[in-house]
Nucleic acid binder design. Structure first.
Lengths: 132, 132
DNA sequence: CGTCAGATTTACGTTAACGTCATCTTTGGT
DNA sequence: ACCAAAGATGACGTTAACGTAAATCTGACG
């Protein structure tokens, strides 16, 4: 078993996306499944890429941004110039993600505060009701 | 100085958004500036809400989701039922944000790996060039 | 060989979140 | 009183990321 190509249906089920989305990602050059006749066959590499695509989306990156990031994980044997550019781009994204994480942590802390506040208020209301 | 209302322009500059966006948020009931005649006046409370709106956007929440979250920060003197619902919703969002953070941390770690890999490759290329 | 489910291609539709005019009003300043 | 700038109100346009429908194709099976 050297490889294990997936059909489009299997991909859909495994990643919970529609066939339309997969074809769309292909049209946008984020995926390059091979063809067996006219049908698409998704390799392990395609599956890895799709995973990254979906994760990128969850972080609010656009498909175009994701496409650029994907090239990073495909860094084969490019020239030093290309590699440097890719790395620079990646560092930029890394920075974004880090500030995003910091802000997210702050937001989480604040939201927890608010919830605690609401919880205590509910407790007081409960006491009143119990006392009556 | 009990209050310090902002004009729409001041809001735009302070938060780097367009007037169109502010009116749009108002149409979607995320902001409720008062009116002095026909003109909008944004209170401190509006500014706080806008800050949360923009932050929510950065985390990929839709305006509708943000609207619901905003009500959390407006928990005044509602009934216990309403308050419980709001709190439940908030806990759900909190969970989402926490998993998002965890996934983000993992993505950051992986991206750092890749970058390090690229960096080392560049170093090797540099050595070769130097040796030539 | 017929057909019937599953794929593909093509093309138009949809939603969110504004952008971009065009066209009034309002208003502070001279 | 008058003018230009700022603000308001429609109304239509735009982009991203698919959804949906229609027509065609293709391959395994009885």
């Amino acid at each position: 078993m050297t490889e294990t190509p997936y059909t489009i249906r299997q991909m859909c089920e495994e990643f919970e996306v529609t066939a339309r989305a997969l074809r769309f990602y292909e049209a946008k050059e984020l995926l390059f499944p091979e063809r067996q006749g006219t049908k698409r066959l998704y390799s392990k590499r395609d599956r890895a890429r799709l995973k990254l695509i979906l994760r990128g989306k969850r972080f609010g990156f656009s498909l175009e941004e994701i496409r650029q990031l994907l090239d990073l994980y495909t860094m084969g044997d490019q020239g030093a110039t290309q590699l440097t550019m890719t790395r620079t781009l990646a560092l930029k994204h890394l920075d974004e993600m880090k500030s995003q994480r910091d802000e997210l942590n702050q937001a989480i802390a604040e939201l927890e505060q608010e919830i605690e506040w609401g919880t205590k208020k509910l407790e007081r209301l409960g006491e009143r009701e119990t006392a009556a």
